[in-house]
Design a protein around this nucleic acid. Structure first.
Length: 273
DNA sequence: TTCCAGGCGTATC
DNA sequence: GATACGCATGGA
């Protein structure tokens, strides 16, 4: 059952949502611009919108600081994918033993509806890189522009002008992506309207965008829930638990399953240190 | 010092 | 189409 419920209290928007955990959703490697400012509190951005969100566990609610009902309905409801019933998704996936365990441990994970260009460029930066350094490079970019830049804003960038990012061999890939979006060869609207497989082919025209980066952008930036990004961690989980492939209960929602499994295998590796 | 990180392009077979 | 290798950078 999906129990998204909200009301305004003083200047804050109070949200009741059972299938949400801030660490699992904002700090799980799907988004790179959220900062954990304290226990149970995050600060971050979506496009030009800024948000501080905290959890109040004793009340079982989340507080979106200074957010009006109008802003919540027009921006954050969609961003946090509150129109999707994750309870139903988790029930479906729990038919499988391993997924059931992953859902028990990481059932507060939601797939954010992020900006297409931000995810394409962010996951180009992510390749053969670690999460802390990905965040560092993106924070340099955002500091330079005063927010995450659109591809239009980046139209004159070159490998040399991006040197301050310290993004290494990825800089030339960013420049290629900027160029293809600005020429109109690729557009977020066109890609978003395509079926996942075709959208993937389009994104892979960009130099530095292979299957994994394309799938991450499709899942996190275009909300294609059937995209299934396979990175080093998911390779491990597949080899260990699903040598024959994902179970049927994940059909059409492979990407959501991936997020539970990704966190599950990483936690397992951490425990075995 | 060496290895690794939410991979991919290129060369080679 | 499959497989091997280099790649910028920085933390462990």
């Amino acid at each position: 059952m999906n129990i998204t419920d909200f009301f305004v209290q003083n200047n804050d928007l109070i949200l009741r949502q059972s299938d949400l955990d801030l660490d699992q959703t904002l700090d799980c490697g799907q988004a790179f611009r959220w900062v954990r400012v304290s226990e149970d509190c995050y600060h971050g951005f979506f496009l030009g919108h800024e948000l501080t969100i905290s959890e109040e566990p004793e009340q079982g609610v989340f507080r979106l600081h200074g957010v009006s009902e109008n802003e919540f309905r027009s921006i954050w409801f969609d961003y946090f994918d509150l129109g999707t019933d994750y309870g139903e998704i988790k029930e479906r996936l729990s038919d499988d033993e391993t997924l059931c365990e992953a859902v028990k441990a990481f059932g507060g994970t939601r797939i954010l509806r992020q900006d297409p260009w931000e995810t394409v460029s962010s996951f180009i930066i992510s390749q053969n890189n670690n999460i802390p350094r990905i965040k560092l490079i993106i924070s340099r970019l955002c500091e330079h522009y005063g927010g995450y830049p659109s591809f239009e804003a980046m139209k004159d960038e070159t490998v040399e002008s991006l040197a301050y990012l310290r993004s290494g061999f990825r800089a030339k890939y960013i420049v290629d992506a900027v160029s293809r979006f600005n020429s109109g060869e690729l557009s977020p609207e066109t890609i978003g309207a395509l079926a996942t497989a075709d959208a993937r082919t389009e994104l892979m025209k960009i130099k530095g965008v292979g299957p994994k980066v394309a799938d991450c952008a499709l899942l996190f930036g275009f909300h294609k829930l059937d995209a299934f990004p396979v990175d080093v961690w998911v390779k491990r989980v597949m080899a260990q638990y699903y040598p024959e492939g994902l179970p049927d209960c994940a059909k059409g929602i492979e990407g959501v399953a991936q997020q539970y499994l990704f966190q599950y295998i990483r936690a397992e590796a951490k425990d075995n240190l």
